[in-house]
Amino acid sequence: MPKHKTSAWPLSQAYVALIVYASLYPFAGWRDQGIAPWEFLRSPWPKYWTGFDVAANAMGYAPLGFLLALSFLRRGSPRFAPSNRTMAIVVAVVAAAVLSLLMEALQTYLPSRVASNLDFGLNGAGALAGALLAAGLERLGAIDRWSRFRVRWFVEDARGALVLLALWPFALLFPAAVPLGLGQVFERLEGALTEWLMDTPFLEWLPVRDIELQPLVPGAELVCVALGALVPCLLGYSVVRTFGRRAVFAVFTVLIGIGATALSAALSWGPSHAWAWLSLPVRLGLGIGLVLALVLIVMPRRGCAALVLLALMLHLTLLNQAPASAYFAHTLQTWEQGRFIRFHGLAQWLGWVWPYAVLLYVLLRLSAPDRQNRMPA
């Protein structure tokens, strides 16, 4: 079986960043209370806690334990598998516990956060559960089956694309003004730069727009939705091995995008509004995006990567020529006031950054020598 780098390791790093962000948000008001950062370990257990708190703290670290253990198992030698599984569990739990200990200690210096030994214990228990699940799946052969599946479907250096594709549905969880429209940041960046440079001579350096941003017409919205569906399909095509599997991948990807957007709408505005975003331009855009993806299954891998650049540039240009809808901003208040799945705005950041991370990845891929461009039918 060909060797390849595991995607679990970069995914675990991304999840560590998520935990750090969620644990230390809003990163403001740091102060020293005169309490040692490890004092919470000797404090009595909290008197007031809810079932949600217990589940959130345990489940929050379970994916980290799973990914860390899986990373170790995929890197380790197949010999002495039982000792490998034990070591993978130990490494994953210790690493997660150290991270949790550090996060709880730093919360001592944040006025809006409370360090808790209960949270620390639950984080460790969640990491242990995730690591045990990874070891159990490896023992049952599920990891080997995934390895064989990956070898059949994807080229050897597919790790970067697979990580980006795995993050795409989570980027869609924060509701966008245009369905599948990730990366609409121009107006926010312009406002942030203006605020930062206020009362400085550098404010005059900012370009002044001649006209205000105009809302997207239905035709432009249709194009944005079609490109939003096409981009992850083309990204996958750059690492999928055969034409037939590309077709299956395209249909599956579009369905995942629709499901993630519906889940986002249900979480934001209630289950009754889960499909309210499916207007006529959106439905046409999804259909056109899928048809284009199926037509382009015959493109070579480097050609697909180049088309990702073109599609993303057009997509981002159209999106960032439109302002954020005032009605849409108002409806986001429910989301921004507190949904656990948003991780204090991290899902929104992921939605902003994802297209630009894809641009960087594709540029690096195109600049590298192509050793796997031939496509078996």
Rank of each mutant, 00 (worst) to 15 (best):
S83I: 14
L167N: 01
A69C: 12
L172H: 05
S7A: 13
V254I: 13
L182Q: 02
R74G: 07
L310G: 12
N84S: 11
L106E: 03
A266E: 07
A14L: 11
L172D: 03
R42H: 11
K47T: 11
L110T: 04
A129P: 09
W275C: 10
A226G: 10
G60D: 02
R159Y: 01
S100G: 15
E187N: 07
A357C: 10
P179Q: 11
R113A: 09
V353G: 11
W277Q: 03
A166S: 13
V217M: 15
Q13C: 15
V98W: 05
A322G: 01
P111T: 12
L206V: 12
Q184S: 14
Y237Q: 00
L294M: 10
Y237A: 03
L70V: 07
Y15C: 07
Q13F: 13
A377I: 13
T261S: 13
S367F: 07
R283A: 10
A17Q: 01
H315I: 08
G351H: 04
M375C: 14
V93P: 06
V251L: 11
L122S: 02
G76S: 09
S77V: 02
D119T: 06
S147M: 15
F149T: 13
L137N: 03
D144C: 07
A176I: 00
L267V: 08
A142T: 06
A265R: 04
A229Y: 00
L350Q: 00
L68A: 08
V240T: 08
L235S: 04
P281G: 10
E195H: 05
